[in-house]
């Protein structure tokens, strides 16, 4: 077992884990942050996307021990108390989810897109950038609309970045 410490959603956390523990397991099982989902478990679907040191990664394909000392942001770290993050609000407003399983990963990826590409995003860019996130319900149209609107809202709100 290895003792690890990192900052998750702005809070210092630590835990004793086996080296083979994946970051997503550590988040869900040790920290009980179950907003991050495991979909395919083969780094294709993107349901497990979180931010590590400001970059979107697939937490099913990263060891928890590799995150020693890192800053991690999960879907639970976006909202400000009961006030949804603009990207979350946009997904609700634009019906960007049906079953909701892929949504945490979609939103974490969407916030990462805005962090990298700015708040004015065209449809083509959004679709290209979402290629690592798979949704089996919506057909993507409303997700793309939600990301576009959420990006604009983030821009209008002075780029409310995630808690990182």
């Amino acid at each position: 077992m290895t003792m690890i410490s990192m900052t998750v959603n702005g809070k210092a956390v630590s835990g004793n884990v086996e080296p083979r523990t994946l970051l997503v397991q550590f988040l869900r099982e040790n920290l009980r942050l179950t907003g991050t989902h495991v979909g395919c478990d083969t780094s294709q679907c993107g349901a497990c996307v979180v931010h590590v040191d400001g970059a979107a990664v697939k937490s099913c394909t990263m060891l928890a021990v590799s995150c020693e000392g890192s800053h991690v942001t999960t879907i639970e770290g976006l909202a400000n108390g009961t006030e949804l993050h603009p990207m979350q609000a946009a997904f609700r407003e634009h019906h960007g989810l049906q079953c909701g399983f892929c949504t945490p990963g979609m939103i974490m990826t969407a916030v990462d897109i805005v962090n990298r590409k700015g708040s004015t995003l065209d449809e083509h860019t959004i679709r290209e950038e979402l290629e690592g996130n798979i949704c089996r319900c919506t057909g993507y149209h409303n997700i793309v609309k939600a990301v576009e609107a959420g990006a604009q809202a983030m821009g209008a709100g002075g780029m409310q970045a995630a808690a990182e």
Partner: peptide
């Protein structure tokens, strides 16, 4: 290569 999250790692 891969997708944006894969390219970050």
């Amino acid at each position: 290569i891969g997708d944006p999250a894969v390219r970050n790692r």
